[in-house]
Amino acid sequence: MTTTTDATDTDTVPAPARRIDLRDKAPDFYAAMAALDKAAAHGLDPAVRELVRVRVSQLNGCAYCVDKHSADARALGITEQKLHGVTVWRETPFFTARERAALALAEAVTHLGDHGVPDAAFDEAARLFDADEFPRLLAMCVTMNAWNRIGVSCRMSPAVRA
């Protein structure tokens, strides 16, 4: 017996309606966030920057940011294999020591436990990133968490690509 429906395998389910557009309703705040993001990114390795943005966004469940920063990572030449491996980075051979340290710090900053960021994650990243880049890495972790709170709270959704 065959069941037919009106839906096809190519139909997508619409995202929940956006709650508010902060760029429109609070442009000064949005501009300040953009400036914060630009300052955090200044001098940070672009590949590390995008890997951190993707991982933090995955952890926070921000579909808009995962989509946006995955596309940005691809534009930098980060492979699909590496992007797919971000969710399981500890179990893959795709990441450098610096990328691993950045991802560990990003996870620790995102999942602040009762005791904050563990010394091991902080110290390893501080050891592998120089005195100029490490503060930018930490700032990117903080900034991306803030962006994700905006995206999730406002119900920002990625566009469907053909």
Rank of each mutant, 00 (worst) to 15 (best):
A139Q: 11
D130W: 05
M144T: 13
R98E: 07
D132R: 15
F122A: 06
F94W: 11
G113D: 08
R100T: 04
L137H: 05
E133T: 12
A101F: 09
D114G: 11
L138K: 07
F122H: 14
A125Q: 06
V109C: 03
R100N: 15
H115F: 13
L105Y: 06
P93M: 13
R136C: 10
D123G: 08
C141Y: 00
D130E: 11
A97L: 05
A121W: 01
A120H: 07
A97R: 05
L138M: 07
M140Q: 08
A131R: 13
A121S: 09
E124K: 01
P93I: 10
T143Y: 11
A125M: 09
A125R: 02
D130M: 10
E133S: 13
V109Q: 07
D130C: 13
E91W: 07
D123N: 10
L105S: 01
H111Q: 05
A102P: 00
G116D: 13
E99N: 10
T96W: 12
T96C: 01
A120Q: 14
T92E: 13
V109Y: 04
A125N: 04
E99L: 03
D114C: 06
T96M: 01
M144N: 08
E124P: 10
A139Y: 02
D123V: 15
E99Y: 06
H115M: 08
F95V: 05
A121I: 04
F134W: 06
A101T: 06
L138P: 00
H111W: 14
F129E: 04
F94E: 06
H115K: 14
L103T: 03
E133L: 11
A106G: 07
L128W: 07
E91T: 11
E99Q: 06
F134M: 00
M140G: 08
A102C: 02
R136E: 06
R98Q: 15
F129I: 01
A139K: 06
E91L: 12
E124F: 12
R127E: 15
R100G: 06
A121V: 02
T96V: 03
V117F: 04
L138W: 13
E124L: 04
A102H: 00
E99A: 09
M144G: 06
T110Y: 14
A131I: 14
